[in-house]
Design a protein around this nucleic acid. Sequence first.
DNA 1: TTTAATAATTGACAGTGTCAATTGACGATG
DNA 2: CATCGTCAATTGACACTGTCAATTATTAAA
Lengths: 212, 212
Amino acid sequence: MPKILTADDVLAFRQRLCDLALKAFAEQGVEGMSLRGLAAAAGCSRTTPYRYFKNKADILAAVRQSQFQKLADVSESVAASVASPSQRLEALARSYIKFAISSPDAYRVMFSVNQRDEKRYPELVHEINRSQQPMMTAVSEAIDSGDIEGDPGNIMHVLWAGLHGIISLQLSDKLHMGRGFEELSEVMIRALGRAVASNPAREAATHRVKEA
Amino acid sequence: MPKILTADDVLAFRQRLCDLALKAFAEQGVEGMSLRGLAAAAGCSRTTPYRYFKNKADILAAVRQSQFQKLADVSESVAASVASPSQRLEALARSYIKFAISSPDAYRVMFSVNQRDEKRYPELVHEINRSQQPMMTAVSEAIDSGDIEGDPGNIMHVLWAGLHGIISLQLSDKLHMGRGFEELSEVMIRALGRAVASNPAREAATHRVKEA
DNA sequence: TTTAATAATTGACAGTGTCAATTGACGATG
DNA sequence: CATCGTCAATTGACACTGTCAATTATTAAA
């Protein structure tokens, strides 16, 4: 162990702890993710992590930030590869779903965790925003091109809400039937696309569940 | 304190503890909801709750069961008051949203809580199912009447996923703009209605749901 | 080699969930 | 009325946890 930690050493150990934390979270939930257990798994003493993180909440925030960063990266990459705003929206939705399903524990730690004082971690907030921006931009462009009408933030949130809802269902095993999830994803994606494409002002005050 | 506890006494104390638990959860989250704090608030000693509940998880399950029971009751009541399946679906969606928004803490404890081994609490599972059944029934009836086509469970889940997504957004303060939530709710409700009513088989051969 | 800085460890404390042993209250019984 | 036996309630205790202060170990600089 060197006397002076290089910045790389610090980052490496932080990343190592984050990986162990995610694994512990996946296996035993937030409760089971104990600092002492983490330290033991890392092969160091109990309080060593305190030199790299302020406290337990700090570690959790770092874990979440790291995962949101991954999601942001892949989203930006997907967004850069599709020109048409509407097709880009669909591609983003699919990659979002793929990300969640292929890393269920990451998705869980990102969203199913106490986000009471999230704003105390500006870097985390930044990554969260960055992960949403590609979808936001696609919606804005669709609005500019006249395909959609409404507030970009709100529309983006509706899309995201639908995705999040169906992903949550899948991750908590509410969908038993094997290929139910793929079908539902398609239904949801198209339903939301249709919601975006419609003009609520025209249909005015009466809302219908069914339309002929 | 009487020597022999009547069944009513037991239920009363359980309910009392559940109320205190919900309050603690609302104020300090799951972590802050400590058994000792609960006991102190109830005016009894630390281990007295152990005579009424097996452990902490048991209390949480009871709290959630109690809330799901409320939701099931109001849903059944709403369902009984609307004959038309499609209108009933819409009414159920609105009452569902109203329930969540007027009791945000209850909603949070119902869904944003570690549901790892939920199946170990059959009564809780029963209330959860009961809370979903009115919507399920409405969807089934809509299918029987030919308005909709597809698997009732899956369609119900899509509806629920959308509602849950937008409610989650609202409860975590992601929607800043004052009346954003009402607008989004309307968009979501109509979008989902349209999803149910549409026939994707015509658009693409891979997925199906259908229209009137 | 000595020194000063800093990484890492250990000690300690308050707080938690939980079980075992103890105390306390009360209806039934002699 | 006094005693007993039962069950509710309390206290004691243990193994945990997060976290800070004090201590030790390590190593670059002098």
